[in-house]
Amino acid sequence: MTADLEEKTDRYGDLLAEALEAATIAPPEGTPMATAAEECREMAASYLADGDHFRENGDLVNALASFSYGHAWLDAGARVGLFDVPTDGHLFTV
């Protein structure tokens, strides 16, 4: 079971890192929606950092949870138009 958790944690960490790179803010700069997008992006980046910290300290359950929450911020933002994201591939459910 530990090997499965390690694999899933690594996969979700990589997914979040890739998604952060791929997501660009869609609304025009200086608008309230752009501010919301920046805040969502910041939350996702914070969860990535938290997940990395947990993983480095052997806490795979909280690392996986952090990576999942971080990706949820990006995925939800993409669904409501805060981010331009690739529509093909595995990064987003849009």
Rank of each mutant, 00 (worst) to 15 (best):
M1V: 15
A3D: 09
A3T: 10
D4M: 13
D4P: 01
D4T: 12
L5Q: 01
E6A: 12
E7K: 13
E7P: 05
D10F: 12
R11I: 07
R11L: 14
D14C: 07
D14Q: 15
E18Q: 15
A19I: 00
E21T: 08
A22T: 02
T24W: 03
T24E: 11
T24F: 04
I25W: 10
A26Q: 14
A26K: 15
P28W: 09
E29R: 07
E29P: 08
E29F: 03
E29A: 15
P32E: 10
M33H: 11
M33L: 15
A37F: 06
A37H: 04
R41P: 06
A44Y: 01
A45S: 10
Y47P: 07
L48H: 01
L48N: 00
D50G: 10
D50Q: 08
D52V: 14
R55D: 01
E56D: 14
L60D: 01
L60G: 01
N62D: 04
A63T: 07
A63P: 05
L64C: 06
A65K: 12
S66H: 00
F67D: 04
S68M: 11
S68P: 02
Y69S: 13
G70P: 00
H71M: 02
W73R: 11
W73C: 11
L74V: 05
L74Y: 10
A76H: 09
G77R: 03
A78D: 07
V80A: 09
T87R: 13
G89L: 06
H90G: 06
L91N: 09
T93Y: 12
